[in-house]
Simulated scan of single mutants.
Amino acid sequence: MKLKDAAATLALGRKLAKALKPGDVVTLSGELSAGKTTLVRGLLAGLGYAGEVPSPSFAIVQPYESLSPPVWHVDLYRIDNPSDLDELGLEEICGDGVLIVEWPEHTGRDAWPHALALSLAVAEDGTRALTAEVPTAWEGRWPPR
């Protein structure tokens, strides 16, 4: 899927929000400035969040518990060891809310085998190419409408 600009990335995030349900995990991969956090901003806006959406690079986990479903935005860029993931308590979150994980490759592919795995790549013309690995749980929900 091609995303022409930041507005298209935000729009995709808003559509994705409509497909989410408790227990979902969405992983976002791509180089720095590929549009991962922009996609999350659109997703949160689609769920009704009107505040600022910072990249959680330093906080690692940014909760949005007032949303329905609640969302936890996670940035694993600073995680060096997959065992560090245990200390974040993300497993408890997954049942009640939605987990959005940037940089999932920092913990290995096995951390979220049932996640909708999205990857963004920047083309020379500045557009973004989005690819998706769609697990069985997401069939019929991806691509979002």
Rank of each mutant, 00 (worst) to 15 (best):
K2A: 07
K4W: 05
D5N: 13
A6S: 12
T9I: 04
L10I: 14
L10N: 01
A11T: 07
G13L: 09
G13W: 01
R14K: 14
R14T: 02
L16E: 00
A17V: 14
A17P: 07
A19V: 12
L20A: 05
K21T: 15
K21C: 14
P22Q: 12
G23V: 03
D24R: 01
V25S: 02
V25T: 13
S29G: 11
S29Y: 03
L32Q: 07
S33A: 15
A34M: 04
G35Q: 03
G35H: 02
K36M: 07
T37R: 03
T37M: 08
T38A: 11
T38Q: 03
T38K: 02
R41E: 03
R41K: 15
R41C: 03
L43W: 02
L44D: 10
A45E: 10
A45N: 11
G51R: 09
G51N: 13
G51Q: 10
G51P: 03
E52P: 06
S55A: 14
P56R: 05
I60R: 05
I60Y: 06
V61F: 04
P63W: 02
P63I: 09
Y64W: 09
E65L: 14
S68D: 15
P70R: 07
V71K: 04
V71Y: 02
V71N: 04
W72G: 01
H73Y: 12
V74S: 01
D75Y: 04
L76V: 12
Y77N: 07
R78S: 09
R78T: 07
I79V: 14
D80T: 14
N81Q: 10
P82D: 09
P82A: 10
D84Q: 15
D86F: 14
G89K: 10
L90F: 04
L90E: 00
E91K: 10
E92M: 09
C94N: 06
G95S: 13
I100N: 00
E102R: 05
E102C: 14
W103L: 06
P104G: 08
E105K: 11
G108F: 12
D110N: 12
A111C: 11
A111P: 05
W112H: 04
P113I: 15
P113C: 12
H114L: 13
H114G: 13
A115G: 10
L116I: 03
L116E: 00
L118P: 00
S119K: 11
S119R: 11
S119F: 03
A121P: 05
V122M: 03
E124K: 13
E124M: 13
E124P: 07
D125G: 13
G126L: 10
T127A: 13
R128C: 01
R128H: 07
A129K: 06
A129Q: 06
L130Y: 00
L130F: 05
V134M: 03
P135R: 05
T136S: 09
T136F: 06
T136Q: 08
A137Y: 06
W142E: 06
P143E: 07
R145Q: 10
